[in-house]
Nucleic acid binder design. Structure first.
Lengths: 223, 223
DNA sequence: GCGAATTAGTCACCAATCGCGAACAATGTC
DNA sequence: GACATTGTTCGCGATTGGTGACTAATTCGC
């Protein structure tokens, strides 16, 4: 990614790649060639190809494949300097399904969010915004599903929601809401995971819903 | 605002200023000096002062005062050209309370969203994103309140919510939800608006709430 | 083979919330 | 003063959401 040719680019594209790692969110960082233990978000200089394209290129260069989902976070200046010396950076967040092969071990590593090393201030802001945006959008985007493989058990899905929400959910309520929303459909496969009853596998398959005439949720305000 | 001096700026800041105008959202546009009937969002070239500062400067230059609320929308390239020829543009949305004096009549005018003239494609994208973002964030930001004066009647507030949501709300339910969310407090002033009982004036005064342990709203997904 | 342990999936009860119509209150109009 | 008009509140029935307990299917230890 970071091949710095024209010294000061007008703007860079910085990518926050997230996945679930050991009951936490994890972010993929790149070891900079300069310092021994300096880490950075993967980033690209703009090449006049469009922001989405730049972000996709950056992600593909790291992963070898496209993220399951990607969205822009916003533009950042944040006074402080950027590794690429650019005036502004445009942040993108991408979600990686668990199980996707990733280049761990080389100059890349997954860091749990609770244990992220020091980053350039602007990149730290990009990361924080990415995470809070993901958590905010859970209701409007199929975020949890994009962090899971195509087929998953309902318990895995619930754990993913708990991870993102940061709180425990009740099994029965979760499943009732899920079937009411028509988001998943069962497959005819089952998975036996050690001891206990095997779990049925589901896939993400949102269906049309009736308009769902619920009122406004003013209680979400002033949270 | 648009004083174009260094021909090609690296990026511009484009501002979507919204207010309520005749039971619709309205956006403030600027008549470009070139074409007779060509309109544009107010915009600024970057001056190395920070994005927020540029956006605030752009808004202040148009209004003479600061918007009641402002937030970044994102960065846009969108292939097509921008009036300022910049590679990318960073969009901001600002909310103007009804009643705020605004420079209508000069080279500025409010356009209801249903009747916006042709814009540069990128600015059209910025405007559309701004509106949908405002509508999405209603639950998380006090958007409706920022479009109203400091003191307002509950009927006015309800009309504002109806305008933003695009649907009618039931009076009793709206008020119940409102008091339950502890968002407003009554003042000791009343306003008599022609015929009918005078309405009490309220002000936006969010209070701490108990954690409000409601579950996830999966039904909001796949809308 | 058999029961304990473990995990998946469902049911039923109860409380909180919501949609909705109607009542009640306070003012202007005739 | 009767009536229209607008603001404010009440209460009922239906839906939704939180919760514990129940059933189902498998592994493990003996």
């Amino acid at each position: 990614m970071p091949d710095r040719r024209p010294k000061k680019a007008s703007h860079t594209i910085d990518v926050v790649l997230l996945t679930a790692v050991r009951a936490q969110l994890g972010v993929l960082l790149w070891r900079t060639p300069e310092g021994r233990e300096k880490w950075s978000l993967p980033w690209e200089t703009a090449r006049g190809e469009g922001l989405e394209a730049s972000a996709a290129r950056a992600a593909r260069a790291v992963l070898g494949s496209d993220p399951a989902w990607m969205e822009q976070i916003g533009a950042f200046d944040d006074s402080k300097r950027h590794p690429g010396e650019a005036e502004i950076s445009v942040g993108y967040v991408g979600l990686i399904s668990v199980g996707t092969p990733s280049p761990v071990g080389g100059n890349y590593a997954w860091f749990p969010l609770s244990d992220v090393p020091q980053l350039a201030p602007r990149q730290r802001a990009i990361l924080d915004t990415a995470v809070s945006m993901i958590r905010l959008r859970m209701d409007q985007s199929p975020v949890a599903f994009k962090l899971l493989p195509q087929m998953f058990t309902l318990t895995e899905l619930q754990h993913m929601y708990e991870l993102l929400l940061g709180k425990r959910l009740h099994k029965a309520s979760f499943r009732r809401a899920l079937t009411g929303a028509w988001l998943v459909e069962p497959t005819d496969e089952w998975r036996s995971e050690g001891r206990g009853r095997p779990a049925q596998l589901y896939r993400y398959a949102p269906r049309k819903r009736r308009p769902a005439q619920r009122g406004i949720r003013l209680d979400l305000l002033s949270s």
